[in-house]
């Protein structure tokens, strides 16, 4: 410490708080007193260092927080990965479901229900003779107009005849005529208490109804087929077909 000036006085000088008289005296001494100069310089740098130490503490704290926060941000996708991924999967599935339903909605038509069904292949039609045999042959040859023409020359129809005429009309997209001949089999069966071509009638009537836009009737036949485990065509319809029927109802 300087012998002539206390630290308090030197600090007051640096702050400009020393009396004028004492200040002039000190400034005069500074010019020649090297120790006093050093004392003042040491005081100045000490004060500056304390202040800078304060800033250093603020800066170090800010840097620590910044780097921790940055690290946390970088690790966030890993820490919340499961939730985020579950959310993303759910969103993707929802999007997929909505997309699928949209595609299904716009692509569903009466044909879309029956296009993947089995072809109109006749049950074994052996032992037929005469007019019926000619009808069968025309049907097998894909000559459906011919089938209808030949049918006009037949006086007595049996179940097979009705079926062939119904199927030929179905091929020619005459839904109403197909329905008429196929349902005649059902009527005949009820009268004779037989079950001739009963499953085929159900199956082909679905198409006949759909061609005519009779969605409810088509639905009833599909429900009947799918509910009956022993139905010949049980596996040919599923829930998707019933969903398509619902879509057709909305669209109509």
């Amino acid at each position: 410490m300087n012998e002539n000036y206390s630290l308090e006085e030197l600090e007051a000088y640096l702050y400009g708080e020393l009396s004028e008289e004492r200040k002039s005296q000190l400034e005069e001494n500074i010019k020649t007193d090297l120790a006093l100069q050093e004392e003042l310089a040491a005081l100045q740098i000490s004060r500056a260092a304390v202040e800078l130490a304060g800033w250093k503490s603020v800066i170090a704290q800010s840097q620590k927080e910044f780097l921790e926060e940055r690290e946390e941000t970088l690790n966030k996708p890993i820490q919340i990965g499961i939730r985020v991924w579950l959310g993303r999967i759910a969103a993707s599935l929802t999007l997929l479901l909505v997309g699928t339903l949209a595609v299904l909605f716009f692509s569903t038509s009466p044909e879309s229900i029956t296009e993947s069904q089995i072809g109109y292949s006749l049950p074994v039609l052996r032992s037929s003779t005469g007019e019926l045999a000619a009808l069968e042959q025309a049907y097998l040859n894909g000559e459906y107009e011919q089938v209808l023409e030949l049918a006009k020359g037949i006086n007595s129809y049996e179940a097979k005849t009705y079926l062939l005429i119904g199927l030929a009309n179905l091929e020619l997209k005459n839904g109403q005529a197909a329905e008429e001949f196929l349902t005649r089999i059902e009527s005949e069966n009820q009268t004779s208490s037989s079950k001739d071509f009963a499953d085929q009638v159900d199956y082909y009537l679905v198409n006949a109804y759909l061609i005519q836009g009779k969605i409810t009737e088509a639905e009833e036949r599909i429900v009947k087929i799918t509910k009956d485990q022993n139905h010949t065509y049980h596996d040919n319809f599923g829930q998707l077909d019933l969903l398509k029927v619902q879509i057709l109802k909305i669209k109509n």
Partner: peptide, 20 residues
Amino acid sequence: CLQSLTDQVKSSPALSKNLQ
């Protein structure tokens, strides 16, 4: 406290040289 710091500053040869 301040005196203690300034004393250390003055007694540091490298620092004292820079101050001069």
